[in-house]
Design a protein around this nucleic acid. Sequence first.
DNA 1: CATCTGATG
DNA 2: CATCAGATG
Lengths: 294, 294
Amino acid sequence: MPPKRKQGSTNKTQEKKETKKVKKEDTASDAETGDGKKWSLKMLSWNVDGLRAWLKKDGLSVFESEDPDIVCLQETKCSESKLPKEAKDVKGYKSYFMSAKTDGYSGVALYSKTEPLSVTYGFDDTKHDEEGRCITAEYEKFYLVTTYVPNAGRKLVTLDKRMDWDPKFRKYLQDLDAKKPVIMCGDLNVAHSEIDLANPKGNKKNAGFTQEERDGFTELLAAGFVDSFRHLYPDKTAQYTFWTYIGNCRAKNVGWRLDYFVLSKRLIPQLCDNVICSSFLGSDHCPIKLLMQI
Amino acid sequence: MPPKRKQGSTNKTQEKKETKKVKKEDTASDAETGDGKKWSLKMLSWNVDGLRAWLKKDGLSVFESEDPDIVCLQETKCSESKLPKEAKDVKGYKSYFMSAKTDGYSGVALYSKTEPLSVTYGFDDTKHDEEGRCITAEYEKFYLVTTYVPNAGRKLVTLDKRMDWDPKFRKYLQDLDAKKPVIMCGDLNVAHSEIDLANPKGNKKNAGFTQEERDGFTELLAAGFVDSFRHLYPDKTAQYTFWTYIGNCRAKNVGWRLDYFVLSKRLIPQLCDNVICSSFLGSDHCPIKLLMQI
DNA sequence: CATCTGATG
DNA sequence: CATCAGATG
């Protein structure tokens, strides 16, 4: 990313809008790196649970309130032919979409203020790529990968698909990482540790918290990547990004941390903050925000 | 029907409520027969296009605003197991339901202040009766039949079913008529004549206005029955009971008269009025109201 | 308890 | 452009 802002400058327009619309805790506008450099890149990742429904709930307002450099969306559930114009033409952004072959299922999107050097879709796996789960944007200093990882399903009916995905996707990231540092984000459909969901005991056999899925995430980290939120806040409890609509779970904060920014280890010195924007409504997930000095 | 009211008496409670909630033109509270007798029986018929959706739109309020003796509903689209309690237990009424075998399809309901002498479902036709299209209530002085006639479908894919229905249902009514006069009501899924829809020219090959369907209705009338609305208002134009949701047709009154009260000819002397309650919202059909001195 | 599709009207 | 069911999450 070649940000036009100078390092250390804050953007006053941004802060003003944030103050209006967003809780203080979700802004972190003065976040800085360990050695005191201010952020220069702001990214959002949000599982929107249906782009068209999210539009009706004024989801696009985050572009104004947050003025992010990059926005990644998951579960757009919208074939490209049905994409509303307003979703494609967000002022000031280039937009990229990857939809599933099956209508109304999966799908991801990427918005970028600056045009990436290149954009690619999927990772050369016929089966997984049919499901519209991955967009990669190459910037000068990093690769950005956004993904919607396969859900293991009720009664784990699609755990096989997920177990097929994990090593392939990990290898894909490692291959990218060999060329440039990687920022990967999205709905990884796993709560890594007990601290990452409200009810760990009751969910050990449920999609998103099986040992297999958790191990997949552990292996990803072992391959040279970092869970940026947990890196910054190793002991912070009750931090979730998803709450099922059923049973008023969001109000009770009975949730899961399923959405992540995962970074190549060598980007840690440039990590300023990772904020869970739990007050942002419009989906059963909330957005997460990454601030980098890059 | 053995009404508890005396002939000629009006019900003041009713009138009061009607004045509050309903357009003057929809009330006809002083309707009377040709020889000057006031109505004693008020019936409503309404295709609700999904009972549960209609409940959410406060459909049941017609029971209060109109205080009808009998209410017939069509297209309930609700299996009996899924019927909300509030729909079954309307205070002051007995309720009867016939649902289709296929969940969420067709279905009719009947509410009656006084308990009928008997209630029967369908008309002994295995195929048609599976679709929950007909309830018959026997009262002292008449049979009441409410029905949801098969729609001939897009591209007339179910015109055959409809053509099978018409003579069978007609025979059923004739057999009842041989015993007691009949009041039949419901969504007959046909606009009889050009005057009965906004766009007759364009719909001659569409469900609801094919020659076959129109002839079916003509034959019903020939068998000793009367279209009570058209009997009272032979030349009244732009009187519709259905408007597709598509393209703002209701606001433009681009509609169809598909809902009827059809009476045994010998009931005509007791007919006071038939009102199309076009201001009542809650469905793509509006209710129709029959006032009888009976 | 939401989102979608696809059938139905 | 509504309703519904059923798949999916």
